[in-house]
Design a protein around this nucleic acid. Structure first.
Lengths: 225, 225
DNA sequence: GCACCTACGATTGTCAACAATCCGCCGATT
DNA sequence: AATCGGCGGATTGTTGACAATCGTAGGTGC
């Protein structure tokens, strides 16, 4: 019936709204738009080369994701994340990544370990080069790969959103980077526990990893409780 | 400073796109739009009394939530959920509600128990009256209340989306209702474990509750593995 | 000098029309 | 007889303009 060509599906390019949403999402992630900043529709539309229609559709999507805050007849503002939000993001991440880790352990954990090597390598390289942004990217990719390996579309989607919020937290004070070697070591410990099938150890290390991150961020935060 | 009026905030009514999204979401939830059905923009816009602009914004939001599937220049279709989706929805729900339950146990569990009484009462009434839709509504409210009691906005938002997908699964074969008394009893057991602070028992019962639901749904599903 | 009111500017929310794209059907061709 | 190319209808994607709303600056009265 078919011509037996593997991976020839993705001919359909995504909708304009989705592309615009991705563009703005990464811009927020990278800190191009600081928290609290107002995003004018006409300005953005002109800068992106699209009309206000598709742009508004993209905005609605980002509002649904919790990245933007919409006030009627006021405008769209980049969501500001306080200490409570930091704790909540990591609470949700812990829940999701814990479930993903359990799924990976129950399924093909060898493939997951392989998939984690790429971000781990990038993380080591960024740490050696002192590249803070690259380190954050690799950290992002590591956790995304972990959840992707679970094979759960919903856990994956949740993680995608949560990781963006994580980056927003980090971007707020990008210069306050955590000690890079420690960060690399923490992730390697996660991989080791996963590789060896040490369920309880992996879950404990994952929880500790999240707690560390929260503590680091809150310590660097201006008005943290 | 303020005039001490409790609950006077929601003066600002939500945006049109949000209202439209809610309307369509409940329609999908109730089974008004069967899975796989195409939603014509002009038709829907005319029926809701709005233009295509706000409607498209609402659609984008629903697509982001995973309720609709968009094909370029083809149209919007209600997402069809297969056996894998059922398992995935409940996998994610288990992860999220587990985390919420732990939060509730660590905080004010007495208030949560009180909050659960309302949906429990509605559930008993619906079970006695043989009202399948009311039973599903109460079930929905029970889990929403549980996660809301955790005080985590992100867990709450995730659960909102997942519960809608749960209703989509149930709506596909609404006549195949589970034995009502058993369902009520399961939820009362959850409340009891929460009230008594029996952490492990609560988590076990929660996991069992989810597994039961998956088994029930898959058993009633046409092409389930 | 201070508070209130009013007009202005800017922004968002909404709408109707135009253009691009795709599906199904039909006839011509091999 | 089966397949390819073209045509008609319908739907989505996009655009620009119109209307409603809000914040703010300026002026006026007390």
């Amino acid at each position: 019936m078919s011509i037996e060509v593997p991976e020839l599906e993705p001919v359909s390019r995504r909708s304009t709204a989705e592309i615009v949403a991705d563009r703005i999402r990464t811009a927020i992630m990278r800190g191009t738009f600081v928290p609290g900043a107002q995003l004018g529709e006409v300005d953005l539309a002109g800068r992106l080369g699209v009309s206000r229609g598709p742009l508004r559709e993209a905005m609605q999507r980002l509002v649904a994701e919790g990245l933007l805050r919409s006030e009627r007849h006021r405008g769209l503002f980049v969501r500001e994340l306080g200490p409570d939000d930091v704790r909540d993001v990591y609470l949700a991440r812990t829940a999701v990544e814990r479930a993903a880790a359990l799924q990976v352990l129950a399924a093909d954990r060898a493939a997951a370990v392989v998939a984690l090597e790429t971000p781990l390598g990038a993380m080591r390289a960024a740490a050696a080069a002192g590249d803070a942004v690259g380190l954050a990217d690799a950290d992002h990719d590591f956790h995304a790969a972990l959840v992707a390996a679970s094979g759960s579309p919903r856990l994956r989607r949740m993680t995608d959103g949560l990781l963006v919020e994580t980056r927003m937290c980090l971007a707020a004070f990008q210069q306050t980077a955590p000690p890079a070697p420690d960060l690399v070591a923490e992730h390697e410990l996660l991989r080791d526990a996963l590789r060896d099938g040490r369920t309880e150890l992996l879950l404990d290390r994952l929880a500790a990893h999240m707690d560390d991150a929260v503590a680091r961020i809150l310590a660097a935060m201006p008005g943290a409780a």
